[in-house]
Simulated scan of single mutants.
Amino acid sequence: MSSSLRLEKITADNVEAACRLKVRPDQDGLVKPVAWSLAQAYATPDTAWPRLILDGEQLVGFVMAFFDVRFYPDDPNDNRLRSGLWRLNIAADQQGRGYGRFAVEAVCEEIRRRGQTRATVSWVPGEHGPEQFYFKLGFRLTGETSGDQVVGELELGEA
Results as ranks from 00 to 15, higher is better:
57 E>A: 14
75 D>Y: 12
54 L>E: 04
69 V>L: 03
67 F>E: 06
73 P>R: 11
46 D>K: 02
43 A>D: 07
63 V>L: 12
46 D>F: 00
50 P>S: 10
47 T>S: 10
71 F>K: 01
66 F>D: 09
44 T>P: 00
52 L>P: 07
60 V>D: 06
61 G>L: 05
50 P>M: 06
37 S>C: 15
61 G>E: 09
69 V>W: 02
47 T>M: 12
35 A>H: 05
39 A>V: 10
43 A>R: 12
52 L>F: 08
49 W>N: 04
38 L>C: 12
56 G>L: 08
70 R>V: 15
73 P>Q: 07
66 F>A: 07
64 M>F: 06
50 P>Q: 11
61 G>M: 06
51 R>H: 12
37 S>Q: 14
40 Q>E: 08
52 L>C: 10
67 F>W: 09
39 A>F: 03
49 W>I: 04
55 D>P: 01
36 W>K: 00
54 L>Y: 07
48 A>V: 03
67 F>V: 05
71 F>T: 00
51 R>L: 02
66 F>N: 05
61 G>C: 03
44 T>M: 09
37 S>H: 15
51 R>I: 04
58 Q>F: 02
36 W>M: 02
52 L>W: 04
51 R>M: 08
45 P>M: 05
65 A>Q: 13
37 S>D: 15
54 L>T: 02
42 Y>V: 07
42 Y>A: 08
44 T>F: 14
72 Y>A: 14
49 W>V: 07
51 R>P: 09
40 Q>F: 00
68 D>H: 15
60 V>A: 01
35 A>S: 14
75 D>M: 09
36 W>P: 01
48 A>M: 12
54 L>K: 09
48 A>F: 07
37 S>Y: 14
50 P>F: 07
62 F>K: 01
55 D>S: 14
68 D>Y: 13
73 P>C: 01
54 L>S: 02
45 P>E: 06
40 Q>R: 04
62 F>S: 09
49 W>H: 08
53 I>G: 06
60 V>K: 03
37 S>I: 00
58 Q>I: 12
57 E>D: 15
53 I>Q: 11
67 F>P: 00
47 T>L: 13
35 A>L: 02
73 P>M: 08
